[in-house]
Nucleic acid binder design. Structure first.
Length: 868
RNA sequence: GCCGGAGUGGUGGAACGGCAGACACAGCGGACUCAAAAUCCGCCGUCCGCAAGGGCGUGCGAGUUCGAAUCUCGCCUCCGGCACCA
């Protein structure tokens, strides 16, 4: 999704020098029969075709006989080709879906493309091609690449957001939000990228404030913009109680929303020669308890009262400062270690509780966009105010002190500790009150006079929704000289994006020059009107796409209420954590907004979320064509087959961890599949050079196999449930290695062997679907049974008798150090265990004649003899 | 600066209060081969020791516990997010 990978620069892949000396398909003269060799290049396309013919992955959304399981993976921006990172997200997700399906769920796993967005336009400008052609071509390439994964995507439900059949409903939904009062237009300073136009706050990254897509430095510009009222849901968005999401994401969203409780306090300005009229200056503070310590006030440079209150003799300096603040590069403005600057307005305000007159300053450390854009400055108890006061030589008055602190002890830094024991000082009637209580009392006293009220503010801003770009959903609005802003009637949707665009090599929106698009009539008065040329942020597309997947062709509404009720919220969503505060927050907002528009009956979009890690380039940097560190999966698939690539990605490490890409080890996974193949296909064969050793006890060996198979099954089941694919693969390797040991002996081919192979294939089916299917079909044919896809088999149940531990080797510690391992039957009582343990010579030696003063039993796991 | 996450063999990792290093990669040795490749088998934290065995080991330092890679506190390093939010 919204992958910022730039347009394909040049034909990329210089043939990656593989560190593997392995050549998997080298001729093996010792294998006489071609049909007995594992050849993924032959079996994988064959089964993919067969599955498609059988419509194996076309989910019947109306099948009520099985529980629905909506498995969603973030759709992709069609940047032109898949890299290994796409496989890293999608193939374990597919394994999870297949596992759920075998467990009896009706799994729906759709796929689509986030097709609007800037790279298409950048490519268009650069290469003089149509963004639509570029996008659609890329989608074709990616469809083909996605199919090589062998994933169970239901392609009948594919979505391409740049298609009018999709974006028409963006427009329809926007009109509903507008009706509901959740969309509005406002002129305001916005972050502006010279290449990419307007950026959302979230799209500006880093200390130097660069564009998240192109990296260019972001400027400020005043524009009329469309906004969506995300802030209306700030409190509801803080509630995660009904969803199971990773804690880091919940924390990031919580911080992003940034709720603070405090009070709004109204100060009056003191009448002066140049401004006799008192003005009200509202401030927001989280520390009303420190009101008596306010020794000055600060307005943000954008504050409307700056110009009003400035004394004539201060005018030049104040205006210069404001202008400088506006121009100041964002690097300076945002750097927290920059010395505080500011200038006095030459005006004073009156502290509403103390009656004291305090000077008013303008300073850029106060933000125009937060709270009221003005603060009461309490240097004694706020670090920033302290720095400012020191820089300008302003008074600092302590009003809160810990018990036992001398009230007049000079402060060397702002005192903002909060243990609950602090008391008010220098605060008139309020002296001696605990800080919390004092704050409430001060607000209450002011509230009586209408000069304060408890207030909550948020860091979260409304969603800046307009983009000055061509390649997006046109906002369905016209501007009429008579009627002003007029929504396009539903019946006239979609407002189509014109097919031909005239780029002139600039990032400026070509719609602004497109007369055929611009000129229209007012739906209200029929007079001449102009169309809105802004298009929607592409996060609009991704804010509801999972609803549309259920009924992508529905042409009388955006969503199918029945299917939505039956299938959503999404049961499991997978994708990258880079969307923590954008897509994942907008989607939650949007779901709630649609609910309040009466279109849905649910509060959250995604019940459960899993963030897989990110695969970086071999250099540890983000994979991108420009860095030349992209791993092409096609190359690996050609060499090893899709199943090996899938399994390798699962085996690399914990799925949520990611890490730098390294193909080291893929050969090991491939060898594993070859071994698995050979134990299944040629159980009786013995490799040249292997000694002829029959197990001494055939029955015991058989039992060992059965026990191992069932224990593997028990473990693998838990691993799939917990997304622990790496240990799942390791367990399958262990079982295969055990089978390998008995290959070519009398155990091979027997019932226990057959049982182990059967379970092994079923366990492997979600992860390596082609190989499992091939071996399964051979097995059925050999047994003379009719063919049935392994992917329609139920997940096997393990035998609890076999899984239960019969004998153990109990580790025995003396004073915490392991000294021996004692074999015994499981489940012995403590006395018996003790007797066995103490009889061991090694233990006696370790005790050295000292009797244990205490014996700790961890039943079945360990015994610790303590002599101290 | 604040908020997250992570530090375990040569490497990816496993174990998540109870046998540290499962499973792999790389390396070393062997079998097979005229030979090589492929395949199969074995060894593989570190130090002392011929061995048996023992010492030391999970970023550093304390602590809790019979017992800590795992829990607590304080540091260090790396990665991600936020960044004057009053």
């Amino acid at each position: 999704m919204t992958d910022p990978t730039p347009a394909p620069a040049s034909s990329a892949s210089e043939s990656t020098e593989s560190p593997e000396p392995t050549e998997p398909r080298a001729a093996r003269p010792s294998a006489p029969d071609e049909a007995l060799r594992y050849r993924p290049a032959e079996i994988e396309p064959r089964w993919q075709t067969r599955w498609a013919e059988l419509r194996l992955y076309e989910t019947d959304l109306h099948d009520a006989s099985r529980p629905p399981f909506y498995l969603l993976t973030m759709y992709d921006y069609p940047s032109g080709d898949l890299h290994i990172g796409h496989w890293y997200v999608k193939t374990p997700t597919d394994a999870l879906g297949r596992f759920h399906r075998m467990r009896g769920d009706n799994v729906f796993m759709p796929i689509g493309f986030d097709a609007f967005g800037l790279p298409a336009e950048n490519a268009a400008i650069k290469n003089r091609i149509d963004p639509r052609d570029w996008t659609m071509h890329n989608i074709d390439v990616m469809r083909r690449q996605l199919r090589t994964m062998g994933a169970m995507f239901d392609w009948r439900h594919e979505i391409v957001t740049a298609d009018p059949s999709y974006y028409r409903w963006n427009q329809w939904l926007f009109l509903r939000l507008l009706q509901a009062g959740l969309a509005y237009r406002q002129k305001s300073a916005v972050d502006w990228c010279p290449n990419d136009g307007t950026l959302a706050r979230e799209q500006v990254e880093g200390v130097d404030r660069h564009c998240w897509r192109c990296g260019a430095k972001v400027e400020k510009r005043e524009l009329d913009q469309w906004y969506l009222k995300t802030t209306a849901y700030a409190d509801e968005l803080l509630d995660f109680s009904t969803i199971d999401w990773p804690e880091p994401i919940r924390i990031m969203q919580t911080n992003w929303i940034g709720r603070s409780e405090g009070a709004e306090i109204a100060f009056e300005t003191a009448p002066s020669d140049h401004h006799a009229q008192p003005e009200t200056l509202r401030v927001f503070t989280t520390r009303p308890d420190t009101l008596f310590g306010a020794t000055f006030m600060v307005l943000a440079p954008e504050h409307p009262l700056v110009a009003v209150l400035t004394a004539p003799e201060r005018k030049a300096e104040v205006e210069a400062y404001v202008a400088q603040a506006a121009d100041r590069t964002e690097i300076d403005r945002l750097s927290t270690d920059r010395p505080k600057t500011g200038v006095a307005l030459g005006a004073e305000a009156i502290n509403p509780i103390a009656g004291e007159r305090i000077p008013i300053y303008v300073a850029d450390y106060v933000l125009g966009g937060y709270g009221t854009g003005a603060i009461m400055a309490v240097p004694a108890h706020d670090e920033r105010d302290y720095d400012f006061a020191v820089a300008l030589g302003l008074p600092i008055r302590r009003v809160v002190a810990a018990p036992g602190t001398e009230a007049e002890t000079p402060l060397e830094a702002a005192f903002s500790a909060h243990t609950g024991d602090e008391r008010l000082i220098n605060s008139g009637d309020f002296d001696g009150l605990p800080a919390d209580e004092g704050g409430r009392a001060i607000v209450a006293r002011l509230a009586e006079a209408g000069r304060a009220k408890p207030t909550v503010t948020y860091r979260l801003r409304d969603w800046l929704f307009s983009r000055q770009r061509y390649w997006g959903t046109p906002i369905p609005i016209v501007y009429c000289e008579q009627d002003g802003i007029v929504p396009v009637p539903e019946a006239d949707l979609p407002v189509l994006l014109p097919d031909t665009v005239d780029y002139r090599g600039s990032g400026e929106n070509p719609l602004n020059r497109d007369e055929a698009f611009l000129a229209t009539t007012c739906p209200r008065c029929g007079g001449p009107a102009r169309r809105e040329t802004d298009t929607m942020d592409t996060f609009m597309d991704s804010s509801w796409y999972w609803f549309r997947y259920l009924s992508p062709d529905k042409d009388d509404g955006p969503i199918d209420r029945h299917l939505v009720a039956a299938w959503t919220p999404v049961d499991q969503y997978t994708g990258g954590a880079e969307h923590a505060v954008m897509h994942l927050l907008y989607s939650r907002f949007f779901t709630k907004a649609l609910r309040d528009c009466g279109l849905l009956d649910q509060d959250e979009p995604f019940k459960r979320l899993f963030n897989q890690g990110q695969i970086l380039g071999a250099d540890g940097e983000r994979m991108s064509k420009s860095r030349g560190n992209v791993q092409d999966p096609d190359e690996l698939v050609a060499r090893y087959g899709a199943d090996t690539v899938r399994l390798f990605l699962m085996f690399m490490g914990p799925w949520d961890q990611g890490g730098p890409w390294s193909p080291t080890g893929i050969g090991g996974v491939h060898r594993f599949l070859n071994r698995l193949w050979s134990v299944a296909v040629e159980p009786h064969r013995r490799e040249p050079g292997v000694a002829d050793t029959e197990p001494a006890d055939l029955a015991a060996a058989g039992q060992e196999l059965r026990v191992a198979a069932h224990r593997t099954l028990a473990g693998v089941t838990v691993d799939y449930e917990g997304f622990r694919f790496n240990t799942m693969v390791a367990k399958l390797m262990e079982l295969t290695n055990l089978l390998m040991r008995y290959r070519g002996t009398a155990v091979a081919g027997g019932p226990d062997w057959q049982e182990a192979i059967r379970l092994l294939l079923l366990m492997l089916a979600p992860a390596a679907p082609h190989l499992a299917e091939e071996l399964w079909s051979r097995r059925l044919a050999e047994a003379g049974e009719g063919w049935r896809s392994i992917h329609l088999e139920p997940w096997p149940a393990f035998d609890t008798q076999l899984v239960a531990v019969q004998t153990i080797e109990l580790p025995v510690q003396v004073d915490g150090k392991v000294r021996d391992r004692v074999p015994m039957t499981a489940g012995l009582d403590a006395a018996e265990v003790e007797r066995l343990v103490l009889a061991r010579p090694k233990i006696q030696a370790a005790l050295g004649g000292r009797p244990p003063v205490r014996i700790v039993h961890a039943a079945g796991r360990l015994v610790n003899l303590v002599t101290r």
